[in-house]
């Protein structure tokens, strides 16, 4: 059809943006400032200790951020959908124990698949509580944080389980490398790339942004939002379980709590630092990955420079809050009352 409105287009449409502004916008000011922060940090740390630039140290950083990075990227997806998953750390712990115990009885293949399946089930349970029990994601997964940790402690009697240190698959996961790059880094890169493509280029990803941006609009536009909520929580559980399997691989045994405790908050920290809006609908995997790298370099640099490790948490907290303050003020948030 051709609408022939009475009115010709009225003047007043804002002019198109100039070239360089469009490029800047495509990268995102948020991401640029993260890149700048990383660059500054690298220069400062490198000038103090040249060992920082060693390839071996870069690998160390990469491997150190893999586990928290996995949780951060999947947390990004959950938050973009308008949810939050506080249970990812506990699911990782449960999966770690489960993988070690399954390994002892059935071998590495079954243990890997079994652990991932358990993670998926945990996610579906959280998602079901949210969708069918009408519980907010915060509370539902807070219950998961406590409950799944309890299950991990119960089945393991609170102790580390099994020994996977001699199994080729687990050794490959923990210390192997492909094309000179450690397996751990590959895993994070592949998962992050897959989630990035999913969010950016698929119908599923678009709908996740829509559900997070306005769930009523999404529902009235024919999106089956329950399916998306269940699916995304299942995804979060599965990726968290993958992180748990890597904990087992790294430590050589199943860890119910140590190695996974507190990871949920690290994942939220990275997502928020990466520019993911906690109210949903906004954010990207790229931003989160930059934030993960920034945090990894910060912690690595502090230990290289011999800073008292207790300062690490203080530095992370300060970094997070300053980044978000800058972000909010740039958005022109009015300084009144509780921020949205």
């Amino acid at each position: 059809m051709t609408a022939t409105p009475v009115a010709p287009t009225v003047e007043g449409a804002p002019p198109r943006e100039r070239g360089w502004r469009r490029i800047l916008r495509a990268i995102g000011v948020q991401n640029l400032s993260l890149v700048a922060a990383i660059a500054v940090l690298v220069l400062v740390i490198g000038s103090q200790n040249s060992a920082f630039y060693l390839t071996s140290n870069l690998k160390t950083i990469g491997m150190a951020v893999t586990i928290s990075g996995l949780l951060a990227v999947v947390q990004t997806v959950v938050i973009i959908m308008g949810g939050i998953d506080l249970s990812v750390g506990s699911v990782a712990g449960l999966a770690s124990v489960a993988s070690a115990m399954l390994f002892t009885s059935f071998g590495s293949g079954v243990s890997l698949i079994g652990a991932l399946a358990i993670g998926a089930v945990c996610g579906v349970i959280s998602g079901s509580v949210v969708v069918f029990g009408r519980v907010t994601p915060m509370i539902a997964t807070l219950a998961g944080l406590i409950g799944y940790k309890g299950i991990a402690q119960l089945v393991s009697d609170g102790r580390a389980q099994g020994y996977t240190g001699a199994d080729p698959l687990y050794v490959f996961l923990a210390r192997g490398s492909v094309l000179g790059i450690p397996t751990l880094i590959w895993i994070l890169a592949l998962v992050a790339a897959a989630l990035h493509v999913m969010l950016r280029y698929t119908r599923m990803g678009r709908n996740i942004y829509a559900v997070g941006g306005n769930d009523t609009a999404a529902r009235l536009s024919g999106i089956d939002i329950n399916r998306y909520i269940l699916g995304v929580f299942a995804l979060a559980g599965t990726v968290a379980a993958l992180a748990g399997v890597l904990i087992t691989a790294r430590t050589g045994s199943g860890q119910p709590v140590s190695g996974s405790e507190g990871l949920e908050f690290q994942s939220i920290t990275a997502a928020a630092l990466g520019g993911v809006a906690l109210r949903g609908g906004k954010g990207s995997i790229g931003g989160t990955i930059l934030a993960v790298i920034l945090l990894g370099i910060l912690l690595n640099g502090m230990s290289l420079l011999g800073v008292n490790p207790f300062w690490q948490n203080i530095a992370q907290g300060t970094l997070l809050v300053s980044a978000v303050i800058i972000q909010q003020l740039r958005n022109g948030e009015r300084r009144v009352g509780l921020p949205k």
Partner: peptide, 27 residues
């Protein structure tokens, strides 16, 4: 109830027809 305010004009127009704009799930 109708618009995803934080998304683009394009995303909002395409919201109900993404299926027909996609192939193998890719938009």
């Amino acid at each position: 109830d109708a618009l995803v305010m934080v998304r683009t004009v394009r995303d909002n127009i395409a919201l109900a027809v993404l299926g027909s704009l996609s192939r193998f799930g890719f938009v």
